[in-house]
Simulated assay, not measured.
Amino acid sequence: MATTKRKKQKTSRKKATSKFSTLKVLLYSVFSLFLVILLVLGYQYRDGFLYYLGFKSNKKLELSKDERKLVDIHIYEVLSSHKNHVAGIDVSQYQGKIHWDKLGTIEDNFDIKFVIARATVGKNKVDNRFNENWQQIAKKNIIRGAYHYYRPNENSIAQANLFIKTVNLKKGDLPPILDIEKLPKTQSLDSLKVGLKRWLTAVEKHYNMKPIIYSGESYYNDFLKDDFPEYQFWIANYNFWRKEPENNWLLWQFTEKAKINGIDGMVDVNLLNGDFVRLVSLTKK
């Protein structure tokens, strides 16, 4: 009788152990599948995630031959399907010294009609290459623009004053541009929006031109779209499958990985949602 009881207990333990082992394998399989899906999505949308979090990839990073080919095909497809639109680039100190005398076309087929240079960052930093870039763009007889990289946790008026002190807009230049990518760490979103409006108002008053706002698409949809309806937007979206800008985007930054003669490393390419006439209509009169 005791032996029979021990056999039953042993059988029960084996069944319990087997069930536990099966559950462990199932959980491990589900977790592994979830991890694979997460990694795939993370890689596919890495550019969007980076922009949403306020980071840009290293423009100096080189691509493999296959990656380079895919990027070049994407750039060509976007520009060739928008022949009535104009394209341009934006630059900063991250491109290093640009050889303006050797500046080429985009994908050997598309002229650079405008160049936007980073001028200032926060309340106290001037881009190391701004003055040189600003002068050289004018010498190339290309329409130019300047942007300010906004730091959410610094005083907005101090940031506006630095931009005003640094950038002298002349006839034929694009409106001032405010680049906002990061969320604040020491203030609320409402306070951030107040600061952005203070910057925009001060800069518009000085130049008598309504600024353009730059941001990533997710940031724009979540935090800016409803609160800044009177402004035109320059939107970054690097989704490989997107072929068209939204109708309400003034500019679409569709890649950060172009290779252009005269520029070391990679550079952003932007498509104006319009033709050259519209581009000129935006400039200072």
Rank of each mutant, 00 (worst) to 15 (best):
M1K: 09
K97Q: 12
S92M: 11
Y147R: 06
H206L: 02
T105M: 14
D90K: 12
V269W: 04
V115G: 01
P152S: 03
K59M: 12
Y28F: 14
Y43T: 09
Y220T: 02
K24Q: 07
K197R: 12
L26R: 10
K197S: 11
P152F: 06
K205M: 07
D268F: 12
A2G: 14
L174C: 06
E77T: 11
E204Y: 11
W134M: 04
M1Q: 11
E132K: 08
H206S: 05
N247I: 03
A146D: 05
I89R: 01
T283G: 04
L196V: 11
G96E: 13
I137E: 03
G145V: 06
S215V: 04
R68L: 15
Y207K: 02
I212D: 01
E204F: 12
G262M: 09
W199E: 01
L103C: 08
N273Y: 07
D111F: 08
L38T: 10
H74E: 02
V36N: 07
I112Y: 07
S191W: 04
I177V: 14
P152E: 03
P176N: 03
A146Q: 05
R6D: 02
L189H: 06
L178G: 02
F240P: 01
L251F: 15
L27S: 01
G216Q: 04
K97N: 11
R242Y: 11
T3F: 15
H206N: 10
A138V: 08
Q44G: 01
F49L: 15
S21T: 09
F20T: 07
K210Q: 13
P229S: 09
K225L: 10
K69I: 08
Q44I: 11
N155R: 03
I263G: 02
T201G: 02
F55P: 00
S156K: 05
E204R: 06
